[in-house]
Design a protein around this nucleic acid. Structure first.
Lengths: 329, 329
DNA sequence: TACATTTCCGAAAACCTTTTCAGTTTTTCG
DNA sequence: CGAAAAACTGAAAAGGTTTTCGGAAATGTA
């Protein structure tokens, strides 16, 4: 492996000065076309890449962004992260990964490290849709929040539109002719649970239907199974269930099937999250709401670009979600 | 937000020259203890952090490593990645994240980008334990492979010890008194499937038992269910099944239960991977082999450190895995 | 006191790129 | 052809840090 070429090697090979070489390579218009060509060829030949350290020393952008995640479990944060990385990586941005493990001391440490490295911006990925403390104040670089929004409405946040998602789910069930629709979901301490319940209630009202029973519990398959017993016992008229997550839905259909209910003939079931390993492998495969997390991450990254360019878009942006129809409805 | 402090600010505040300040901060022994103290206090007061760009411009290390993943699905690569990030982040290393999406063109592009940024080393995270083409040749920086080993035995690779893992699983079943043990696993094109089958066969031989039937299929719950029918039909004497993944095991126990078999009384089941959402939520919860992916990632990162220091440890290192006992055995 | 050592400090160079500004060459126009 | 304008080129500086090396101060020795 040979020494890495610098711009003066290029200039020398092309027979021009360093300054001219720089201008040629950066598309400045103070250099003759023919000279530029020579420089570009020399650069190609030496496979020259400018040293980012020297570049950023000049005070220009570092073309580096920080990706700060708090998602110890990884189910939601990671697709967002990959979507963001995708959007950045396609350009010439580099992504510095920091996993704070939900520890605010670590988070502070990472923020200082990122600032010391002069990142152009930071994207903060939450582990739930609950809002989190803002880190943007006095930071000096733009910040975008993905999945978990900032508690400061002046910040830029992107969250999946759970209200719309649950409306879509209920509408789908209503279209199929279901009239008595229960909702089984997770802990009410989660914003996601509250919003999904709220959206479901609103959609039922829109359709002129009575609000169905709502069962709050855990985000687990176990709770889905327990809830199945409760739901079937509580009201035999129920012909559809909207579940707050695919885990709950998977548990529900399993237990309901064991009790002799046919899915979807007797009871139609809609899940949430489109967690492939559960939704597609369940029996029957689950109709569910896909929160499009990669798109969300990618969008957040694009808006961070914009913010770096000074075109910030404050507020909490609700990103569209998608109904994925499988065999449970 | 105030201007970021430079070392000359620190030097000025401490009443010394820039050179002395640098030496004091970096623990060089050419500075009086009292002077050093003054400098350190000044640095603290200004919350000075050295500019990494300026530092690496000198040709020293950039304290940056690349993390190159090809794991589009994320099940295995991501814990490894987080483990690695953990080991790096605890020090003062920064991690540049690159997700090549299994595309070798993208991979090449990222490698060039990482080299241009003068990373001190690269860690390559595979998406399966199958070996992958080496990228180390003529790269100029050390590379460590995690999960998916390099095809060049001169490289440094870390993989979970599937041979030992499957031996452990079988030994566990034998200890419980099971004598007729089937193996249901994924596609034989996967190294993981082959090694797990091999380890299982060896352990059976060690225990003086006949080799049990082996069923090759997919890595899916569906295949686990199908296999249950085949296993139960093929040999009613079978009293235990070792599955090549938790997905398969989850499908197997579900289907076996439906056919009236009690787990673990009639048939004991061991899974593989300790994928919490499946293994812990299955009925009954699955005994399984945990490949300790975060530890693997952390270890790989530590060895990358060593390699950067010139103390490389070539070869494919098999990392210990762990038996997690739940209710299916 | 004179000299030799040791200890400590600071000036300056080096790392690589971009940008500014002044100087030089070429072109255009009368 | 001569002069003005335009086009092009290169020297130098800046950015923050580390390192080297020479010099100054303090200490030890004769």
């Amino acid at each position: 492996m040979q020494r890495i070429a610098t711009i003066s090697d290029v200039a020398h090979l092309a027979g021009v000065s360093v300054a001219t070489a720089s201008k040629a390579l950066n598309g400045k218009d103070q250099v003759r076309a023919e000279t530029r060509q020579r420089v570009l060829e020399a650069a190609e030949q030496l496979s020259f890449k400018p040293n980012p350290a020297a570049r950023s020393l000049l005070g220009g952008p570092t073309r580096t962004v920080g990706l700060l995640t708090s998602d110890s479990v990884g189910r939601f944060g990671i697709p967002v992260m990959l979507g963001a990385e995708d959007a950045f990586g396609a350009g010439e941005m580099a992504v510095l990964l920091c996993d704070a493990r939900g520890d605010s001391i670590r988070e502070q440490h990472y923020i200082r490290t990122l600032l010391a490295r002069r990142v152009d911006g930071i994207i903060v990925v939450g582990e739930s849709t609950d809002s989190r403390p803002s880190i943007s104040r006095d930071l000096g670089v733009p910040v975008v929040y993905a999945y978990g929004p900032s508690d400061d409405p002046g910040d830029v946040s992107f969250v999946p539109d759970d209200l719309e998602g649950s409306r879509t789910a209920i509408k789908h069930l209503v279209t199929l002719g279901r009239r008595r629709i229960a909702h089984v979901t997770g802990l009410a301490t989660y914003q996601a649970a509250r919003e999904r319940a709220e959206g479901a209630a609103a959609a039922l009202a829109d359709a002129g239907l009575e609000p169905g029973p709502v069962f709050w519990g855990q985000w687990s398959q176990r709770w889905g199974r327990q809830a199945a017993a409760m739901v079937l016992h509580a009201d035999p008229e129920i012909d559809a269930v909207f579940c707050g997550s695919d885990q709950i839905a998977a548990g529900f259909v399993e237990a309901a099937r064991e009790r002799g209910r046919r899915i979807p003939e007797d009871i139609a079931v809609v899940g949430y999250d489109n967690w492939e390993v559960l939704a597609a492998e369940s029996r029957p495969p689950l109709t569910t709401i896909d929160p499009n997390l990669e798109v969300l991450g990618r969008t957040a990254a694009q808006h961070l670009f914009a913010a770096i360019d000074g075109r910030a878009t404050p507020g909490v942006h609700r990103m569209p979600v998608q109904l994925v129809i499988r065999d449970s409805t």
